[in-house]
Amino acid sequence: MAEQVALSRTQVCGILREELFQGDAFHQSDTHIFIIMGASGDLAKKKIYPTIWWLFRDGLLPENTFIVGYARSRLTVADIRKQSEPFFKATPEEKLKLEDFFARNSYVAGQYDDAASYQRLNSHMNALHLGSQANRLFYLALPPTVYEAVTKNIHESCMSQIGWNRIIVEKPFGRDLQSSDRLSNHISSLFREDQIYRIDHYLGKEMVQNLMVLRFANRIFGPIWNRDNIACVILTFKEPFGTEGRGGYFDEFGIIRDVMQNHLLQMLCLVAMEKPASTNSDDVRDEKVKVLKCISEVQANNVVLGQYVGNPDGEGEATKGYLDDPTVPRGSTTATFAAVVLYVENERWDGVPFILRCGKALNERKAEVRLQFHDVAGDIFHQQCKRNELVIRVQPNEAVYTKMMTKKPGMFFNPEESELDLTYGNRYKNVKLPDAYERLILDVFCGSQMHFVRSDELREAWRIFTPLLHQIELEKPKPIPYIYGSRGPTEADELMKRVGFQYEGTYKWVNP
């Protein structure tokens, strides 16, 4: 592979701008107003304001973009700056750019259920340069409990009458099928589907988006991507930290609602779906819905739930269990780990287990898709061969690698495990991989909904998990304890083995 010439960040961002501006969906010269509902909250200060700053800094926003914060707290732009700027990672050389960014910011205080507050917000936006005809993007960085009041008031008082209007809704989209349907029906009564952007930030990850290209742009994968060759698929999300004093919020939802029903299920769809007619948003989402419709409700015998306990040999936070978090209700049975087996009941995947695993306070930070292939028929190497695996590593250190057998150097035919490896950090030294939120917010500006969740996708996802969630809430089974920093409950490994996964433990990928 030829040595790549190092590029400056300015040059890299210039390439990104060229890609972005050559499309006809990006209205570079139009006025846009980006409204952050819930501007005083954690999500706004840690993710949304920093993301908008990065896009502005790199010249990736339309030229005439204004940012308006809205929340109940009586704040000023200076207050917003004070709480969000520490997350910007701005350099001293960017000081003038930073001043320009905050000059485009404003803030309006108001209630979430008060019509007069929204009329005041609308008047404020109209007073901005060309504000009355601007395109408006409303980001709901809010708890779902206020979605209905907020969307109703936005629709009645704050819509642009000339430009387009788009609304970005953060997960969780309800707690179960019934609450999700209620919320979807409410929002759909106010906005068209092409105006609604239900954001799952995992769909903005580079390697998640790469799944489609790997599958449908490489001839070698087509013939082997089926039940005849693939023994099982494992989708993993692991965090090495616990709730760390923020367990009160987590306890309301648990690990299945927080990660599995959305992030992991979306990745499953991209692995299992048929080739779409095109890369058009609805063509892709149509195929994802077909996959979900082929999955039956989760069966309790295919589920393992766990909850982390303190590690007596650990240090600091590792010595504390979930129930030691003062914000967690006493005696909570909320799971911090889950392993679930699903089956896609169609011709391509009949009988292939899709194993979804996620948890907190585990032994490493990792998100990946792992396809394990069947054993080689007619073994001539005296059971020395391990199964081939194709691994798409989402985070950290984005990579695609194939675990395969090669001859060990020497005189004899002794096979050993090795890999074919594409590590993004080595291959793409001159490429700026956008943060997931950067990519998705740019998608909203461009009107691309491919990486957002459609209402029928959402409904099918909740259909699969709601009976299990209701059973857990009714019966309150005690989750299996696992030690902070471990791989999780051993019962999860036993479940995976029972459905056909072979864990060798003899080879570990190392970032080159």
Results as ranks from 00 to 15, higher is better:
R175K: 12
I167P: 02
G174V: 00
V108G: 02
G248I: 00
I154R: 01
F138A: 03
M159L: 14
F250D: 04
D30R: 12
K152A: 10
L96V: 13
N165K: 05
K152D: 12
K47H: 09
H27C: 06
G247W: 05
I255L: 07
I230C: 07
F237K: 04
I187H: 08
I33M: 11
R215C: 03
H32A: 08
G245T: 08
G59Y: 03
P223I: 04
M125C: 13
Y49I: 09
H186F: 12
P86L: 11
Q209N: 10
N229V: 08
K89C: 13
I220Y: 07
H155T: 09
A2W: 08
A44V: 05
M159S: 15
S29G: 09
L214C: 07
L137V: 12
D194M: 08
Q22I: 15
R175T: 06
T31V: 15
L75Q: 10
F221E: 00
I196A: 02
V68I: 14
L211I: 09
Y202G: 03
N185R: 12
E252N: 13
H129W: 12
A6P: 13
R17L: 12
A44H: 03
I15S: 08
K171P: 03
N218C: 01
L16M: 13
Q209Y: 05
N218Q: 03
R219E: 04
A71E: 02
V108A: 07
F34A: 06
I234E: 15
Y49F: 08
K171C: 02
Q111Y: 14
E244D: 15
I67H: 05
L190N: 10
K89H: 11
F241Y: 15
M212A: 04
Y107E: 02
F88N: 05
G254I: 04
F21S: 14
R166Y: 00
P172N: 01
S179K: 03
G131I: 07
R246F: 05
A231G: 09
Y197F: 13
E206T: 06
P240F: 10
L16S: 10
F138D: 05
F21W: 14
Y139R: 03
G222R: 12
G222N: 14
I224F: 07
L214A: 09
K46Q: 02
W164Q: 08
I196T: 10
E19K: 09
A217R: 02
Y139F: 09
E252G: 15
I15G: 08
S188N: 11
R72T: 00
G59T: 04
E85G: 10
F138E: 04
R166Q: 00
S189M: 14
E93C: 13
E99L: 06
I67R: 01
T145P: 09
E239Q: 04
A231W: 00
L55C: 11
R104P: 00
L55T: 08
I230T: 05
A39E: 01
V213G: 05
G222S: 15
V169W: 03
F102P: 00
E94L: 06
K171S: 01
R72Q: 01
Y112I: 02
F237H: 09
F34V: 11
L121C: 06
A134F: 09
N165W: 02
F241W: 10
S73N: 06
Q119F: 14
K205L: 02
R227F: 08
F26K: 11
L183G: 03
L60F: 12
E170W: 04
V208N: 13
G254Y: 01
Q133W: 09
G254F: 02
T243W: 02
Y70C: 11
S184Y: 09
F21H: 09
V12C: 12
F191V: 06
L211F: 14
K46V: 02
D58E: 13
G163R: 07
R182C: 06
Q83N: 07
K205R: 02
Y139A: 06
W225A: 01
N135Q: 08
F66C: 09
G38F: 03
S184Q: 11
S180R: 05
D42E: 00
L128G: 07
R198L: 00
I36D: 03
P144H: 02
I220F: 13
C13R: 14
W225H: 05
A127M: 12
K46I: 01
I199D: 00
Y70T: 10
R74M: 11
F34C: 10
T51E: 09
Q209D: 05
P92L: 11
L96R: 12
I187E: 02
F253V: 06
I196W: 00
Q11N: 15
D42S: 05
G131D: 13
E239I: 03
C158F: 07
R120C: 15
S8V: 07
I52V: 10
I154E: 03
Y249L: 00
R104N: 07
L140A: 08
G23A: 13
Y107R: 02
K82Y: 12
I162D: 14
E99A: 10
I167M: 15
G204F: 00
G23Q: 15
I168G: 06
H32I: 09
E93D: 11
R192F: 10
N126Q: 13
D79A: 10
L235N: 01
A217I: 01
D228E: 15
S179F: 03
I35C: 09
G248D: 00
F26P: 13
E94T: 07
D100N: 14
S73A: 09
F26Q: 13
L96H: 15
L214F: 10
D194Q: 10
T145C: 05
Q28S: 12
I224V: 15
K89M: 10
C232V: 06
F66T: 08
T31I: 10
I196C: 08
N105P: 03
V12L: 14
